[in-house]
Simulated scan of single mutants.
Amino acid sequence: MSSFRYFGVCLVVVLTVVLTGTSCRPSLAPPAGQDLPTATTEIDMDKLRDRIDAVLDYTLSQRRLNTKDHAAWQILHGSLAYQIAFPVEHDGKYVSAVEHVLNGGKMEGWTMERGSPLPFVGADGEKRYGLRALLEQGSKTGQGHNDQWLAILSQCNLDPETPIQFEGDVYTVADLIGQVQLDLSRNFDHEYSWTLIALTAYLPTDTSWVDSAGKQWSIPGLVQAEVDHGFGSGACGGTHRLIGLSMALNRHTAQDGEMTPEWVAADGRIQEAIGKARQYQNPNGSLSSNYFQRPGNSPDLAEDIGTTGHTLEFLSLSLPQDELSQPWVARAAQHMCKVFEQTEGAPLECGALYHAAHGLVLYRERVFGPREYKFELTQAEQDASDEEEVAAN
């Protein structure tokens, strides 16, 4: 058992400048003459798989971000969808965005500080200190929600002993986890969606602990707190809260965890949301622009990619395997592909864009099986890179 275990057994189209924090919301209407499928359209699943692959490959390779013009809030959303494979341009070279920050690379919004002493020692017997990701709520450059960075890193399949370079010292993912546990009383918004995603990726789902304020916490308690917030509350129509509950419940089930009242309540909330998503689905396959509250259909593709994309992400995590292949879900995935195709070349807000891409990644993996995502330079870029390398040597 790793040492840290001892501590406890959103889419709008925008001007390019929005990628560094300024937002505006011009409408983006569908191109004339390109009708989307209706409820009676029959779907060829093989063609859907190939279509998903094509839009995901375009989004990975053609939508380029860099550390000069873009910040961690934009860049790390890309890593949510593509994990370690997601590139960022830094000093003229494309590198893995996740590996860049783990190796101590600079990125606006990746704001850390040394944390508190942790109640365990490292493999070398030395006292460990936590690593704290600072909250920059509403900035659209830094961490916008408590524990968002760890939640994204946890979905990149990083080992808890993965090193994190910061200001000349070497921390680990485990040190980031330990600090999150200590800091629960600092979560004044009582928003635990990202906390649940992060902690259940590394800790048993029945874990309990005491934070730095002396308050007792547990993962089932966080689950119940999220359920108690009410249906549809929270960021992006409540989808983030539902995604956190779904990932936690999936991991609890995988651990053969007991269905105590907290987990039963979480499952009930998830099933209610699934029912409403299907009930409010539009004839063209899109999911309600009002999320789970009431029917809604927006002609603005920017809004559509945000609402349908977030809801598809939730469904791809929450539905049983056989239900994901049902026509109503396949129509939602097909619709999402169409919107991606119609917005190629348009500047899109990164949060919702990459949550929609993540929804397609998850859907593709669970319905058709996993695939590798690889960023590739264009031939001209590769030639230029080769020339630079030759000149440098």
Results as ranks from 00 to 15, higher is better:
Thr59Phe: 00
Glu344Ser: 04
Leu182Ala: 12
Gly21Tyr: 01
Ala123Pro: 06
Val390Pro: 00
Glu99Trp: 08
Ala356Trp: 05
Leu150Val: 07
Ser246Gln: 09
Gly130Met: 04
Leu324Phe: 06
Cys350Gln: 10
His100Phe: 05
His90Gly: 00
Glu99Gln: 15
Tyr192Gln: 08
Ile197Gly: 09
Thr205Gln: 10
Phe120Arg: 12
Ala346Asp: 03
Leu203Gln: 11
Thr22Ala: 15
Tyr171Pro: 03
Arg294Phe: 01
Glu389Trp: 13
Glu161Ala: 15
Leu153Trp: 10
Thr172Asn: 05
Val13Asn: 13
Leu158Thr: 06
Arg128Ile: 07
Glu42Gly: 03
Phe340Asn: 00
Val17Ser: 15
Leu102Phe: 04
Thr111His: 12
Gly238Cys: 08
Trp149Arg: 11
Ala332Tyr: 06
Pro320Thr: 12
Leu353Cys: 02
Glu313Pro: 00
Arg186Pro: 00
Gly104Cys: 11
Ile164Tyr: 06
Thr200Asp: 04
Ala213Trp: 07
Asp69Lys: 13
Ala266Cys: 09
Thr260Gly: 10
Phe375Tyr: 14
Leu131Ala: 10
Gly33Asp: 06
Gln321Pro: 03
Ser154Ala: 15
Ile197Asp: 11
Lys374Asn: 11
Ala392Pro: 00
Gly33Ser: 09
Ala380Cys: 03
Trp194Thr: 04
Ser246Val: 10
Pro163Glu: 06
Ala266Asn: 01
Leu199Asp: 09
Ser288Asn: 01
Ala265Cys: 10
Asp304His: 02
Val14Asn: 13
Ala330Pro: 02
Lys68Thr: 13
Glu365Lys: 11
Glu388Asp: 13
Lys127Pro: 08
Asp147His: 08
Met112Ile: 14
Arg278Asn: 05
Leu36Tyr: 11
Ala254Asn: 09
Arg128Trp: 02
Ser385Ile: 00
Pro220Cys: 10
Ile243Phe: 01
Gln334Thr: 03
Glu108Arg: 15
Ala273Leu: 08
Tyr6Val: 11
Glu126Cys: 10
Met336Val: 02
Ala384Asp: 14
Lys215Asp: 14
Lys215Phe: 03
His190Gly: 11
Pro160Asp: 03
Thr38His: 05
Leu312Lys: 07
Ser3Phe: 09
Ala198Glu: 00
Ser193Gly: 07
Tyr291Ser: 02
Leu203Pro: 05
Leu362Asp: 01
His310Ala: 15
